[in-house]
Write a protein that binds this DNA or RNA. Structure first.
Lengths: 213, 213
DNA sequence: ACACACTAACTATGTGCATAGATAGTTAGT
DNA sequence: ACTAACTATCTATGCACATAGTTAGTGTGT
């Protein structure tokens, strides 16, 4: 259901082809929601069948054709309904925390590697999300600008604020995960200090320690 | 793959039936990992076929029978392998943050309701996870105690510390989400203060504001 | 003229998981 | 003796998603 909402959200800004949407999910919007093209194309067809979209064939080059999807009134209504309904939360299912709970089974080096990867992962996410905030603040956000162009000036403030709020929440989450991973690394060091390879162990097996992105 | 690891983790402590495992996922362990019985039973059979477990039929009452699954050497090795390998992280797919990014589409009341539900959700999780930490600290954690009984005293410290570390990370995450939701509520109030139903709006549509659990 | 990257779209297979429901035996309470 | 709740297991359907591969047209550079 959320994929549908994500597609509607993008298509309310302007008509797009499946490929356009796929690229959005690969780049900017993909930092909040992702989907592979193999999921997008069938979903668009289903949405058209449900009357939320209409696909218009437009020429592309000489012989080429592509399908641009336009949101219908029903599509707008469906999106609004989704926005006005309350999400239910699903049960816990987080591989990393499952693993963390049994970390005494891992070799100290493997534990360090995993915690390090966790930190790296969220450091990368944090950088991307912070970049998004910077784009919003400097008025350089492609998506936001196109969205604002469809809105009366009076609603610009809210639209901007919610996008900023979203990314700021993601950054805070990333920071929390980074902290947690560091605490984990400290814990491993403390528990196995008499063991092998504590502070001495030079190169972390997987990646460079401080990749900026 | 993680379900398999979760099942192995539990079964390394002691042999259990599918139903036992299901109950674990419904209660204590379920705060870290959850799975329905319809997923557990087939997975156990697959794991037996793969040689990670052996199922022993034991009588239950007069005519009843149940299957107790015991971990094999190969099962232990598989779990250790999982613990020593590094998880890959999947792409972003978080319905709440997707929604947050487009919150200007929601009616102010719906936005408040959703953010409130978010806060409630994590408040409930936080309470459960904190309870787990309290159990660990007071030596009242069933699972941990049974696990410790299988370990030499020298490894008690690590096993306990990692479990505590896990729940502490979950609590911190919950606190972060609660904070974020509150910032969101403040933002909605600020953006729509001239609008209808700001601070005056008495009963949140869905639930009681401060359910303790 | 050809190679190559990109645009555009589709298909196929398999896993993970939710939801729902069926069957049968057991135990505890009235 | 009855019934309700619990134990134990299994099946079926369908969605969401990952992974991988296919087909065909376009535009650019050498």
């Amino acid at each position: 259901m959320s994929l549908r909402a994500a597609l509607l959200a993008l298509l309310t800004v302007e008509p797009m082809t499946g490929y356009d949407l796929y690229k959005q999910f690969e780049s900017s919007v993909g930092y909040v929601w992702h989907a592979p093209d193999s999921q997008i194309y069938p979903e668009l067809r289903k949405m058209e069948k449900d009357g939320l979209l209409v696909g218009r064939e437009v020429p592309w080059g000489q012989r080429g054709r592509k399908t641009e999807y336009h949101v219908t009134e029903a599509g707008i209504a469906a999106f609004r309904d989704w926005m006005n309904s309350t999400l239910e939360y699903s049960r816990e299912r987080d591989p990393m925390h499952l693993k963390a709970a049994y970390l005494e089974w891992a070799e100290p080096e493997a534990a360090r590697r995993q915690l390090h990867a966790h930190e790296e992962h969220y450091q990368a996410r944090k950088a991307q999300w912070e970049e998004k905030i910077r784009e919003i603040d400097t008025g350089n956000s492609e998506m936001l600008n196109r969205r604002l162009a469809t809105l009366p000036a009076g609603e610009h403030r809210a639209a901007t604020a919610f996008k900023r709020f979203t990314y700021q929440g993601l950054v805070a989450r990333a920071e929390q995960e980074i902290q947690w991973a560091r605490q984990g690394l400290a814990l491993v060091d403390e528990l196995y200090e008499d063991w092998g390879a504590p502070a001495v162990s030079a190169p972390p097996p997987q990646r460079d320690p401080r990749t900026p992105l």
